[in-house]
Design a protein around this nucleic acid. Sequence first.
DNA 1: CTGTTAGCGCATTCAA
DNA 2: TTGAATGCGCTAACAG
Lengths: 342, 342
Amino acid sequence: MRPTVHDIAAEAGVSLATVDRVMNARPGVREKTKVKVEQAIEKLGYVRDVAAANLAKGRTYPFTFILPCNENAFMGELRDAVLQANERGRIERTQITIVDVPAFDAEALAEALVATGESNPAGIAVVAIQADPVREAVRKLTDRGIPVVTLVSDLEDSTRDHYAGVDNPAAGRTAATLLGRFLSRQKGTIGVLAGSLSVRDHQNRFSGFSEIMAAHFPELSILPPMEGRDDSALARKLVCEAVEAHPDMIGLYSLGAGNRGLIAALEEARTKGRELVTIAHELSAHSREALETGLFDVVLNQDAGHEVRSAIRVLKAKADGLEVIAAQERIRIDIFIKDNLP
Amino acid sequence: MRPTVHDIAAEAGVSLATVDRVMNARPGVREKTKVKVEQAIEKLGYVRDVAAANLAKGRTYPFTFILPCNENAFMGELRDAVLQANERGRIERTQITIVDVPAFDAEALAEALVATGESNPAGIAVVAIQADPVREAVRKLTDRGIPVVTLVSDLEDSTRDHYAGVDNPAAGRTAATLLGRFLSRQKGTIGVLAGSLSVRDHQNRFSGFSEIMAAHFPELSILPPMEGRDDSALARKLVCEAVEAHPDMIGLYSLGAGNRGLIAALEEARTKGRELVTIAHELSAHSREALETGLFDVVLNQDAGHEVRSAIRVLKAKADGLEVIAAQERIRIDIFIKDNLP
DNA sequence: CTGTTAGCGCATTCAA
DNA sequence: TTGAATGCGCTAACAG
């Protein structure tokens, strides 16, 4: 049978309360007795039963997630993931409130952060926008000791505690390598469709993409990026126009949302005999179908569920003043082609 | 505050014990009171606190994992994952025993299964070999009500309860598509290095690979597969010879283990001016380095940790007579290139 | 500084 | 057929 606090107490010749105090690093224990307890823990190979601890604590963590009220599939998934986490939260003692903010609106986001702070949550997760008012709002929160983690899109040069999202430059580089290799030394131009280059994740993907393109695929030149604002209708229009305007465009990297519009545009291009090697982001019912019909060649994906769960773990750890194991919280970039779809 | 058993008892006007009886479908409750309790549960929206339940139960699950004592990196990882799971098992109330068997030895495996059954474990996970004595041994176990899940390599036409591993035909298809597209219409031959085609996972990868190659890349022809027995030295020898013998070999799919030997062979080939587009399986320190130096172009990976955890979850569910959510237990095929390495 | 005690939500004897 | 009482491993008042 594995040792319990009782065994430790007996071994160290102290009471349960004292064992608990040293285990939770609480004050009011003489150095000498502390050592005794630690030795007992060491000797018996004690490991604390977290489930029982949580049960006894009965503490709940009120967290707030601030999400853009975008219509695109990925944000929908993210929202679902949060809702789902909240379900499980019943037993994990977390309680999550979702706050909606208009997309791509830094001012509104900053205000929402401030307002959220008022309710004194145990932690905040936010899909960040790169802007000073946002940084300022985050600083105020962290100053007050409220843990803040950025979700999906980071806020650089800020006081946020953690970033729960993929390595976006790496995603861009991945797209570049695959696109370049699939095109294998053909000459031509490559279109880039972003949501908005004021969002850090899109910026970063673009720079990673450009870097590898320039370094390894000089035969391909990148057209100036289009900004589709993650809006399907706009994305469609932009891509259709670009296909017309650039007869030598043989590849496309869509690094934002708006896959529906993009797919429509590619379908239209296909009817005109134009086939572009296309890489897009985020796996959804639509992008999945596009992979199957060959409209998309590759889809890069970040698992919304993983991101949300990671954010919660980190928030919890921070709220408890514990360290997070960085390696364990890294979010992977999934590569999907038609053959390895889940 | 969420409702507890006490609330249910009060609402239904019965005692805790009775609530517990209907919750766990135990006998000794009048139909009428049973209904009362069920209504109370429904009305209050009660959900049982699994952690507390486990704490009270104190039940532990003795599981046995039967693993081939191979030297390759992947099996090492798998073993580590099991060990690690066993650590956590202290709090998850699982206790795992590892049984080693010689690799690729169906008889030995069948014997090990029988022997393991003697100790009456709550469940068995096994890296299967496709053979009748193994099927027979598994059948005896499942007949006795011991849950059996196959791990990494499946046992088809058997009574195993579940398979915790990747979709190997899909892995083969993925390799074929990537290899074919990277080679973009060059003509040539493709080498295939397997561990042993008597193991179902290797068989399946090969057939998926062949299928897509034949269907979409007629300009590439597959050479007869080599069997390296997941042994580095042998793999090296076979690949070196193949490179010599087939000057038109421009691609290689290694669908088994023995990456170290494979890498050595590719290095040798490189010094002779031969570069093969190469796809291998399983991410390790070696294969990772090979990706970085361009010796490997793609590495397909199955996450040993995920597989082990999934196997345990399923075993536990089966031991408790619960259903498993199939979608949640599907193991993904990860695609790694040099740009998206973790 | 240290110990006693009463739960957390649930399962399970043992009585009734 | 039902209920009261006890304990799982841990935390947290409250005393001393």
